[in-house]
Nucleic acid binder design. Sequence first.
DNA 1: ACAACGCGTAACCCGTCGGTTACGCTTTGC
DNA 2: GCAAAGCGTAACCGACGGGTTACGCGTTGT
Lengths: 117, 117
Amino acid sequence: MAAALADPVRRQILEMLREQQLSAGEIAERFSISRPAVSRHLRVLRASGLVSDHLVGRQRFYVLDVEKLVELMQWLTQFVQPSGWEHRLDALETEVYRTRRDRRSPAQLDDIEEHSA
Amino acid sequence: MAAALADPVRRQILEMLREQQLSAGEIAERFSISRPAVSRHLRVLRASGLVSDHLVGRQRFYVLDVEKLVELMQWLTQFVQPSGWEHRLDALETEVYRTRRDRRSPAQLDDIEEHSA
DNA sequence: ACAACGCGTAACCCGTCGGTTACGCTTTGC
DNA sequence: GCAAAGCGTAACCGACGGGTTACGCGTTGT
């Protein structure tokens, strides 16, 4: 998963998806690289579980899935632990779902089962 | 910097340094890969500012430098922000020094000034 | 002074990554 | 039904990453 964050393009994609869900095309047109190149970055993000996708007609929409980012955050706490953080991290999960609610639409949650990276 | 965290060996090294400073040899002997290989991982960590090093005779000791990890943490907050976190992040810097205090060795804190990667 | 130690660097090999163009499949619209 | 749109995949290629062995340089100890 950490490897997925190594690439600046992929990090930028995640930042885009922070505000709203986007189709593959919408994402691609914001980069100067070719569309297939972006498509593969999206595949990596998908495989690592950082984003979810769902099809709407001929478009594929991507949605940020913060769960893995929370894991990263938790890993980081072993190095940096401001007082009172541990409990906050427990509460994270709940907060996450609230944030996620109004992003995705019909949304199958199956993709959350994929484990790789 | 994110690229430096992509490799599992390097992440593991950071975890080792969390408890105590270690010499290059001490680090290397905990891996099954060759010493030069570890040495290069250390170079990457050094270049990205994740660790500091200081020489003692013919040994080179490595010390964790959490600053860049704090930056990562801050980047992550744009995706995950439990209520009340923003202020805690401001207080992070101070906490960092406390954590670092009781590592064995004289421990110069100058390394926090180094900016790279 | 000299052998051994601790560590970094160089040269090399090979797998992976990230870019490109060409292509194919499904959906949309006329 | 057919052309165009929207994406993904395949094949190819240069660059990079991480492993190895060989080597060099400074430090330590006798």
